[in-house]
Amino acid sequence: MTAVNAFDILLCLTLIWLAWQVLASRDPFRAVVLFISFGMLMALGWVRLQAPDLALAEAAIGSGLTGALFLSALRKVTGTKKDERRLDRDEEAQ
Protein backbone atom coordinates (compact mmCIF):
# COMPACT_ATOMS: atom_id res chain seq x y z
CA MET A 1 0.00 0.00 0.00
CA THR A 2 2.68 2.47 0.99
CA ALA A 3 4.88 1.40 -1.91
CA VAL A 4 1.98 2.03 -4.27
CA ASN A 5 1.32 5.39 -2.67
CA ALA A 6 4.97 6.32 -2.92
CA PHE A 7 4.93 5.38 -6.59
CA ASP A 8 1.86 7.55 -7.22
CA ILE A 9 3.38 10.50 -5.45
CA LEU A 10 6.60 10.08 -7.38
CA LEU A 11 4.61 9.89 -10.62
CA CYS A 12 2.74 13.09 -9.82
CA LEU A 13 5.89 14.95 -8.91
CA THR A 14 7.66 13.76 -12.04
CA LEU A 15 4.70 14.86 -14.16
CA ILE A 16 4.70 18.33 -12.67
CA TRP A 17 8.46 18.60 -13.01
CA LEU A 18 8.33 17.44 -16.65
CA ALA A 19 5.53 19.87 -17.45
CA TRP A 20 7.59 22.70 -16.01
CA GLN A 21 10.64 21.60 -17.94
CA VAL A 22 8.65 21.54 -21.18
CA LEU A 23 7.46 25.09 -20.58
CA ALA A 24 10.79 26.43 -19.41
CA SER A 25 12.90 24.80 -22.07
CA ARG A 26 14.54 27.25 -24.46
CA ASP A 27 15.44 24.60 -26.99
CA PRO A 28 12.30 23.50 -28.85
CA PHE A 29 13.70 20.10 -29.69
CA ARG A 30 14.36 19.40 -26.04
CA ALA A 31 10.87 20.59 -25.20
CA VAL A 32 9.34 18.19 -27.72
CA VAL A 33 11.29 15.23 -26.40
CA LEU A 34 10.28 16.11 -22.86
CA PHE A 35 6.69 16.47 -24.02
CA ILE A 36 6.76 12.94 -25.42
CA SER A 37 8.04 11.55 -22.16
CA PHE A 38 5.40 13.58 -20.35
CA GLY A 39 2.74 11.88 -22.48
CA MET A 40 4.12 8.45 -21.68
CA LEU A 41 4.10 9.11 -17.94
CA MET A 42 0.64 10.62 -18.22
CA ALA A 43 -0.54 7.37 -19.82
CA LEU A 44 0.91 5.57 -16.82
CA GLY A 45 -1.07 7.95 -14.64
CA TRP A 46 -4.28 7.00 -16.45
CA VAL A 47 -3.48 3.35 -15.86
CA ARG A 48 -3.12 4.12 -12.17
CA LEU A 49 -6.50 5.83 -12.26
CA GLN A 50 -7.96 2.67 -13.79
CA ALA A 51 -8.77 4.22 -17.14
CA PRO A 52 -7.10 1.89 -19.63
CA ASP A 53 -8.98 3.39 -22.60
CA LEU A 54 -7.61 6.80 -21.81
CA ALA A 55 -4.15 5.38 -21.23
CA LEU A 56 -4.14 3.79 -24.67
CA ALA A 57 -5.35 6.97 -26.33
CA GLU A 58 -2.90 9.13 -24.41
CA ALA A 59 0.06 6.92 -25.29
CA ALA A 60 -0.86 6.62 -28.96
CA ILE A 61 -2.19 10.11 -29.70
CA GLY A 62 -1.02 12.36 -26.88
CA SER A 63 2.49 11.09 -26.89
CA GLY A 64 3.22 9.23 -30.13
CA LEU A 65 1.38 11.07 -32.87
CA THR A 66 1.52 14.51 -31.32
CA GLY A 67 5.22 14.02 -30.75
CA ALA A 68 5.72 13.00 -34.36
CA LEU A 69 3.71 16.03 -35.51
CA PHE A 70 5.79 18.36 -33.35
CA LEU A 71 9.03 16.88 -34.60
CA SER A 72 7.95 17.21 -38.21
CA ALA A 73 6.79 20.79 -37.66
CA LEU A 74 10.07 21.55 -35.95
CA ARG A 75 12.00 20.18 -38.92
CA LYS A 76 9.97 22.32 -41.30
CA VAL A 77 10.43 25.47 -39.25
CA THR A 78 14.16 25.07 -38.71
CA GLY A 79 14.73 23.72 -42.21
CA THR A 80 13.43 26.90 -43.81
CA LYS A 81 16.12 29.44 -44.48
CA LYS A 82 15.29 33.01 -43.70
CA ASP A 83 15.04 34.21 -47.29
CA GLU A 84 12.91 31.24 -48.18
CA ARG A 85 10.36 31.99 -45.53
CA ARG A 86 8.42 34.25 -47.81
CA LEU A 87 4.76 34.42 -46.96
CA ASP A 88 2.88 35.72 -49.90
CA ARG A 89 0.89 38.80 -49.29
CA ASP A 90 -2.69 38.84 -50.22
CA GLU A 91 -3.64 40.57 -53.39
CA GLU A 92 -6.42 42.50 -51.71
CA ALA A 93 -4.06 44.66 -49.74
CA GLN A 94 -2.14 45.97 -52.71
Binding site: L87, D88, R89, D90, E92
Partner: peptide, 8 residues
Protein backbone atom coordinates in the same frame (compact mmCIF):
# COMPACT_ATOMS: atom_id res chain seq x y z
CA UNK B 1 -7.59 31.35 -45.18
CA UNK B 2 -6.52 34.74 -46.50
CA UNK B 3 -2.88 33.77 -46.00
CA UNK B 4 -1.75 37.30 -45.14
CA UNK B 5 0.87 37.34 -42.37
CA UNK B 6 -1.33 39.44 -40.04
CA UNK B 7 -4.22 37.06 -40.43
CA UNK B 8 -1.99 34.04 -39.82
Amino acid sequence: LSGKPPSL
